[in-house]
């Protein structure tokens, strides 16, 4: 039972860190639906780096850096070029899906390194995720930087008038957010599941996106949601809990079915009025300075 609980928290770590990256971007008004693509880049290039150099540290650094670069690319399309953010995000997802399939395929298989040591049985990244949640909550709600980020997400025109550079703030957020997504990808491929195969995130990036929508942009609700999702995924990956009920292929559909169920629940009027919603007003709209 303890073992199961620990695995659930490990699974939730990936959701949490990736979704925090998305949350920062969305708070500044930039929607990135291509989290899955950014994570695939971080996971694949981090994996290749670690495998060829034998260094976990380098693997994580490459994963984070690549995530930041892809975030920069998304920023370029959606801030500088003022393009449709969904188109750009979808582009990043398909780029990540396509390119990492080609780049990673010679490295298909296990990482073959000694596993990263655990703390009380837990992956150390779980604690990193908790710390990041608190730090990001603090920055967003208690600092002047956070105020700046929220103001460019709510009403960029007003922010610009009061002397805040909308473009700079948004770039900061998408690059920082991309680094977190790349980091989450690297945690997946180096710690959680150190075996590379193509498209191996199985939609975790899309789930992280969904998590942000129903976290109401609050890092703590996001953390809670991640733990809930991590547990549900882990439960659905353990068919031995209820032996003989379904074939292993049917079990594989369960995490996705549960995601749909949870999405549905959290989209109902009942849930949204109960928890209150605070959408960044300018989310997804390109801002063009006159």
């Amino acid at each position: 039972m303890w073992e199961f609980f620990i695995r659930s928290l490990d699974a939730s770590t990936i959701f949490t860190i990736a979704a925090l990256g998305e949350l920062i971007g969305q708070r500044s008004g930039i929607l990135n639906v291509g989290i899955e693509g950014v994570m695939l880049f971080g996971a694949t290039l981090g994996f290749i780096t670690a495998k060829t150099t034998g260094s976990y540290l380098l693997g994580f650094l490459v994963g984070i850096a690549v995530g930041g670069l892809i975030g920069l690319l998304h920023g370029f399309f959606s801030i500088t070029l003022g393009g449709d953010q969904v188109v750009s995000g979808m582009g990043i997802w398909i780029l990540g899906f396509g390119l990492t399939t080609y780049i990673g395929s010679p490295y298909t298989g296990p990482l073959g390194m000694e596993r990263i040591p655990t703390i009380l049985g837990l992956s150390p990244f779980f604690f990193v995720a908790i710390a990041l949640t608190i730090i990001i909550w603090f920055i967003l709600s208690k600092t002047s930087l956070g105020l700046r980020i929220r103001s460019v997400g709510e009403s960029p025109e007003v922010a610009e008038v009061s002397g805040i550079s909308v473009a700079k703030t948004r770039y900061l957020c998408v690059v920082g957010g991309g680094m977190l997504m790349g980091f989450a990808g690297a945690i997946f491929s180096l710690d959680y599941n150190p075996v590379w195969s193509y498209n191996f995130l199985l939609g975790r990036g899309f789930i992280a996106l969904a998590l942000v929508f129903f976290s109401m942009w609050n890092p703590f609700i996001l953390l809670g949601g991640s733990i809930l999702f991590g547990t549900l995924w882990q439960l659905s990956l353990n068919p031995q809990f209820i032996p003989g009920l379904m074939s292993r292929y049917k079990w594989r559909t369960v995490p996705f079915a549960i995601t749909l169920g949870a999405l549905l629940l959290m989209s109902t009027k009942w849930f949204r009025t109960k928890w209150g919603a605070a959408t960044p007003e300018a989310l997804g709209q390109p801002y063009v300075k006159d």
Binding site: G91, I94, G98
Partner: peptide, 10 residues
Amino acid sequence: DYALLGVLMI
């Protein structure tokens, strides 16, 4: 062909 898909898209 996957890589081509990605490059075309971006």
